[in-house]
């Protein structure tokens, strides 16, 4: 006689609101993460005539618009210098803003899945990031080619780039998660988001450099608020990795903006986890 002992997983469902970050479950669903990410990538340019070419044309047009505009507006610097500076900001900003956008919409767009099947819900915002990253990588290659053509090789500080990009993604993911969770209940988010992103565009050194903003005749508190914006140091750090010089570096503000980033991450995760179990009731 033999006895088989099989391990059978036990699951308990309760009425409590509490849910916690279950990393082992997320890992078990890594296959789903992969297929959801691939879905977003492969349907992106479906039924377009030129398909994948869009991911080259879009950043190129952006670089040209803002690069040329900056040469026209600011005559104090060398045109190539100014052009490259602004286009670096533009391509990184494109990654950051699209990450906020995609993550914010990730829950409402997938509402049909949320209401029909159980899955660790954090997968949805996470998997929406891949599209943005792939678009960015293509844009970055275009930018580096332009850079080498116009100026030469980038500085050795380029090795810090992955850290800066990761840091940027963490912050944008946190912001996006906050918006995504709120939008489950309040679709107002969908309408206000474009304005927020537009304001952030001007309040961050994408087109208007930090040097330019700080020289403006503004009250002191406005300048402080400006420097607390995590995007300021994020974008300047990105430019630093390419040029090797940091625009208005201040260790205090730098530290605070990093603090704000991680605070945002914690707050948004907490908000998400507290509300996660009720998503299907509200969406």
């Amino acid at each position: 006689m033999c006895i088989f002992i099989t391990y059978i997983m036990k699951t308990v469902i309760t009425s409590s609101d509490k849910s916690f970050l279950n990393l082992s479950e997320l890992r078990r669903y890594s296959g789903l993460f992969k297929y959801l990410s691939l879905r977003d990538v492969s349907v992106r340019y479906k039924q377009t005539k030129i398909g994948f070419a869009w991911s080259i044309i879009r950043p190129l047009i952006n670089i040209l618009i803002f690069g040329c505009l900056s040469i026209l507006v600011d005559k104090t610097q060398l045109p190539t210098q100014k052009f490259l500076m602004v286009s670096a900001g533009v391509i990184f900003w494109q990654l950051l803003s699209s990450a906020i956008n995609e993550v914010s919409n990730s829950l409402t767009v997938n509402s049909n899945i949320l209401t029909k099947v159980y899955l660790p819900k954090l997968i949805l915002p996470l998997s929406s990031l891949l599209v943005c990253i792939i678009d960015f990588l293509i844009a970055f290659v275009i930018f580096i080619l332009l850079f080498i053509f116009l100026k030469g090789l980038p500085t050795w500080q380029l090795i810090f780039l992955p850290i800066v990009i990761l840091y940027g993604l963490v912050f944008c993911f946190s912001l996006g998660l906050l918006f995504a969770t709120a939008s489950v209940k309040f679709r107002d988010v969908k309408f206000i988001l474009p304005f927020i992103i537009q304001i952030l565009f001007y309040a961050s050194p994408v087109f208007l450099s930090t040097e330019f903003i700080l020289k403006l005749n503004m009250p002191e508190f406005a300048k402080i608020i400006y420097q607390l914006n995590p995007f300021v140091y994020m974008l300047n750090a990105f430019k630093y990795c390419i040029y090797g010089s940091f625009d208005n570096f201040n260790i205090l503000y730098f530290g605070i903006s990093i603090g704000i980033t991680f605070l945002t991450l914690i707050v948004s995760l907490k908000y998400f986890l507290n509300f996660e179990k009720s998503f299907a009731d509200y969406i």
């Binding site: 699951t11 308990v12 469902i13 309760t14 209401t115 099947v117 179990k277």
Partner: peptide, 14 residues
């Protein structure tokens, strides 16, 4: 199927 949570009570499954 854990899509919505119950208001009261609990469920166990294996």
């Amino acid at each position: 199927s854990r899509i919505v949570k119950p208001s009261t009570g609990s469920i166990e499954y294996y």
